[in-house]
């Protein structure tokens, strides 16, 4: 199982970035191998549709789970179509977020909880 966590910095010790489309980094965690890989968020400065672009990156990475702060309607729709489950309202360090997910302490998002930005 692979997870993507939005992060303010490139390392697992960095805090979770509450934004999805405009997060500084996306950190990929392979639960089986226990490894972290940092993905630069290419679209974070896009004029519009940053969340749509990020959703494609996440889908292409093979992740099935996203841990983030908020998720807007377009990103939500794209992630849903890609079969990615979203857990929002995640705080603390990336490492803590992964632990919280492992412990089953996070709640899955069933509808968008962020405002779109064009």
């Amino acid at each position: 199982m692979k997870l993507v966590i939005t992060a303010q910095g490139p390392n697992p010790e960095d805090p979770v970035d509450p934004r999805f489309g405009r997060a500084a980094y996306h950190i990929l965690f392979d639960d089986k191998a226990g490894t972290f890989t940092t993905l630069e968020n290419q679209g974070k400065d896009a004029a519009q549709g940053a969340g749509v672009q990020a959703a494609q990156t996440i889908a292409a990475s093979g992740a099935e789970i996203l841990l983030t702060g908020h998720c807007g309607p377009k990103a939500f729709q794209a992630l849903n179509a890609a079969g990615v489950s979203i857990f929002s309202g995640v705080e603390g360090r990336v490492l803590d977020a992964v632990q919280a997910w492992r412990d089953g302490r996070l709640e899955e998002l069933n509808s968008p909880d962020g405002t779109p930005r064009h």
């Binding site: 679209g43 749509v52 890609a82 079969g83």
Partner: peptide, 18 residues
């Protein structure tokens, strides 16, 4: 250029308002 179309593994989605 406008991120109005998302190519996902099983589906390609259009966001008309973008």
């Amino acid at each position: 250029e406008f991120n109005a179309i998302a190519c996902l593994p099983r589906q390609t989605l259009v966001f008309p308002d973008l």
